[in-house]
Design a protein around this nucleic acid. Structure first.
Lengths: 193, 193
DNA sequence: CTACTATGCAACAAAATGTTCTATAGGAGG
DNA sequence: CCTCCTATAGAACATTTTGTTGCATAGTAG
């Protein structure tokens, strides 16, 4: 019992348009009417797929906010693994739709339970990746088990997001190098706790 | 030529209500209709004060997006100064309108130049405070001059904002103690650069 | 007391937001 | 090719939101 290809086609076309509107004009402008005008899909069809504006916006959000699931590289030295993983994360913030809509998801999350789920799930995934990198380093004996890994993970991810969403400072290779260097030196100087 | 007190009164009452709506329900719900219902001000009067929805939202925004200035304490040991300053910052995030509104300012900043100015100015101020704390510690010889102060400042502030705006994790005394401890141990282990 | 003006209210216009019906066209299975 | 099923477009419609205007009233300044 396969799904009708027409369902899939309209859903895809509608969400493509919704995503573009979301990125270009903000969540306020993601409506059935706007999507209908941007595509050749009638409003009634859109309402059949998403009963109200909220569900349409949620769908558009989820479309972009679904993490591409990065399998972390855990074989090299800690610095190399971290550099690679955070490089991918930084690239996503700089060059993907996720980076563009992240501020709006953050805002929506402050009043909307659904958006909050989107972002916390997304972050859980990111944290797991970074944690795997540190865990591997501990297994290799590269760092000791008593480094405050949880705090390091938080700092590792918080910094690029903070720079992007709040400071509007450049997220470039040079900055990332220094960031990773600092994280590694903390991990290896083993501040204990 | 003084301003008619009726103008002042309605403006204040309207913005009070708008602020509450903004914090409780999000920027989407800040409309002339909603404010009118929340107060005893007629819609037509509201439209006379703010010609459209955008100007009303902007006004509500600016009302609370002006953060209080914190003069840093720079006399005690580094840990104590940092703990105090970040404690104030954390308190503001937890318990003031600014903390509730920050996510929406962040979102607005992604499309609105004015909001971006508000937040970057605010951050510049915060960074200066933290920098003063580190500078004093260097002057006292408590830490050496070659610690990567800029990165530490960024991490110091990024972490609480990240936790509050993105992770929705608790910002409590216990977390802050660990955060400050880690920052101090980094500064004192002097990872160089 | 008089002139002025902000307000509330109601009536209205325009646009956005949902709903429902019907005809049509596309797809599934024989 | 033929038939049944279903998703769609389009229009007609009801409802709500958004913005405008005219007027009587009440508060304010002088």
């Amino acid at each position: 019992m396969k799904e009708d290809p027409r369902l899939i086609a309209t859903r895809q076309a509608a969400l493509d348009a919704a995503q573009r509107i979301l990125m270009d004009e903000g969540v306020l402008h993601v409506t059935h009417g706007a999507v209908s005008k941007a595509t050749r899909i009638s409003r009634s069809t859109l309402y059949r797929h998403w009963p109200d504006a909220r569900s349409l916006r949620d769908a558009a959000f989820r479309r972009i906010a679904t993490p591409p699931n990065i399998p972390p590289k855990t074989d090299g030295p800690l610095r190399s693994d971290l550099r690679w993983l955070l490089g991918v994360l930084m690239g996503a913030l700089n060059d993907t739709p996720w980076g563009q809509i992240a501020p709006q998801v953050v805002a929506a999350a402050s009043t909307d339970e659904e958006a909050r789920l989107v972002i916390t799930e997304f972050m859980k995934d990111r944290f797991a990746s970074v944690e795997a990198v540190f865990a591997a380093a501990i297994d290799r004996g590269e760092i000791t088990a008593d480094v405050p890994v949880d705090q390091l993970i938080e700092l590792a991810i918080a910094a690029p997001y903070f720079r992007k969403l709040i400071r509007y400072e450049a997220l470039d290779e040079d900055w990332l190098d220094r960031h990773v260097d600092l994280l590694c030196s903390i991990a290896k100087s083993n501040p204990g706790r």
